[in-house]
């Protein structure tokens, strides 16, 4: 077992534990912290895959910006412990087996298809420089469109969050 495999299993274990913890924590702030664990573990996996820029963006945007937004909203709304509700019997009895079946089916299909062989020598792509070249050449129109998307999202968030006039 090589060092890379060991690092992979440690990070994968962290990610899965974080995701399971997200489900079982009853307080939203604990769920948010578990999600941050998942994201940091995924950033480590991106580094292992040789995608340094994506790893940095994952930490900065997901771990930094999006999760701070979540934590801010949880604190702003003073979200307490999730209340237990009597949801339907069908969801309780069929939900977990079906969800496990979905995950098992996905994982089994991938495992059965075996290793992905493409004949490409691993680590042959110069990551960050090539990424910049692609982003500003082939994907320049989608890139420009995302700036419009962000503009619209800012406007939408402002319109939604402002108080109605006269209330």
């Amino acid at each position: 077992m090589t060092a890379q495999l060991i690092i992979f299993f440690v990070l994968a274990g962290l990610a899965v534990i974080g995701a399971v913890s997200l489900i079982f924590q009853r307080h939203p702030i604990h769920s948010a912290l578990s999600l941050i664990v998942v994201m940091v573990a995924l950033a480590g996996l991106y580094l292992l895959l040789g995608a340094e820029f994506v790893a940095a963006v994952q930490i900065i945007v997901y771990g930094g910006a999006i999760m701070v937004l979540f934590v801010l909203v949880i604190m702003l709304l003073n979200a307490g412990v999730e209340e237990r509700t009597n949801f339907s019997k069908l969801a309780a009895t069929a939900g977990i087996p079906l969800a496990v079946a979905l995950t098992a089916f996905l994982a089994a299909t991938i495992a059965k298809s075996g290793p992905v062989t493409t004949g490409v020598r691993p680590g042959s792509v110069a990551s960050t420089q090539g990424l910049a070249t692609m982003l500003f050449r082939e994907f320049v129109y989608p890139f420009e469109l995302t700036s419009f998307l962000i503009l619209v999202a800012i406007l939408g968030a402002l319109v939604l969050a402002q108080r109605e006039k006269g209330s």
């Binding site: 994968a12 899965v16 995701a19 399971v20 489900i23 977990i96 969800a99 496990v100 995950t103 994982a107």
Partner: peptide
């Protein structure tokens, strides 16, 4: 791992 995380997200 991706499939497992997706499944946990669905759950």
């Amino acid at each position: 791992l991706s499939a497992i995380l997706f499944g946990l997200g669905v759950v």
